[in-house]
């Protein structure tokens, strides 16, 4: 089943000079892990905001699990589509972890006992149980973003969108977040749309999509996508180092696999050399 579907969607911002999305057709299957890549201003965040009605398409429609987004079902859709944003410091409403995770569940009028269970579930899913009563301001960037993910999870969404959620984190924080998201995708079966400009994060995805000026210009399995390095460069994207090494080795006549994993690559090289 299609979890998220953009049907002939057009959208433009009011200010001039920006990009516009025209007749976009794109869909994500249930349980898929899709990475959306693109440099700044390529329209990838707009894609996220269209998915839960933060922005409304000028024409065409966005459907979540087959239901078209409209004014009447806005909150039903938002329950199913959780979004985690970029800035770890401007997403939390409350100062304490559990209060913030509870916010979404409180908003939809859930009974108290259920909210308590949801908080436990969400914090366990992101590995932050022991921080339940901690002050958010004292957490690291990666931990703050994990709390933000928990805040989205408290509504038990079936789709989780990360809109550049790793952009303001250090490498360690980025690893934490990507790891948590991968786990949620595999263990909870949550459909994931990971929007990022860090190419290496796309390695975990089952499909990678490249956006440029409001258009989807490339889409393929990440390993195959990374073989087209020169094309990616024209969209201002740089290859992850391992993919670049693989491409150079191939250009030099070595036959290495697409695994994009350091150990596999080492074995492949060893085979070729011997």
């Amino acid at each position: 089943m299609k979890a998220l579907e953009y049907r002939d969607v057009s959208f433009s911002y009011e200010e001039e000079g920006g990009f516009r999305i025209e007749h976009l057709n794109f869909s994500v299957e249930e349980g898929e892990f899709v990475a959306v890549l693109g440099h700044n201003g390529s329209g990838k965040s707009t894609l996220a905001r269209l998915a839960n009605g933060l922005l409304t398409a000028d024409s065409g429609e966005v459907a979540v699990f087959g239901t078209a987004l409209g004014d009447k079902n806005l909150y039903e859709i938002r329950k199913q589509v959780g979004i985690v944003f970029q800035n770890p410091d401007s997403q939390a409403v409350a100062s304490i972890v559990e209060d913030d995770v509870a916010f979404g569940a409180e908003n939809v009028g859930m009974p108290r006992e259920e909210i308590g269970k949801r908080i436990s579930f969400a914090l366990r899913a992101v590995g932050m149980e022991e921080y339940r009563t901690a002050t958010i301001a004292r957490l690291s960037g990666g931990q703050k973003q994990r709390v933000a993910i928990a805040g989205a999870l408290a509504l038990k969404p079936r789709i989780l969108i990360l809109d550049e959620s790793t952009a303001m984190l250090d490498p360690r924080g980025r690893k934490e977040i990507v790891g948590v998201v991968k786990k949620l995708n595999e263990e909870e079966g949550i459909t994931v749309l990971l929007i990022t400009h860090f190419m290496d994060e796309a390695l975990l995805a089952s499909r990678a999509v490249v956006m440029n000026r409001g258009e989807i210009v490339m889409q393929d399995a990440p390993s195959r996508l990374f073989r087209r390095g020169e094309e990616l460069v024209t969209y201002n994207l740089a290859l992850p180092r391992i993919a670049e090494i693989c491409n150079r080795l191939r250009a030099g006549g070595m036959n290495v696999s697409d695994a994009l994993d350091v150990n596999t690559l080492a074995e492949d090289i060893a085979k070729c050399v011997s």
Partner: peptide, 9 residues
């Protein structure tokens, strides 16, 4: 935006 996304109404 973050509040909207979490169903605040």
């Amino acid at each position: 935006e973050a509040m909207d996304a979490r169903c605040y109404s």
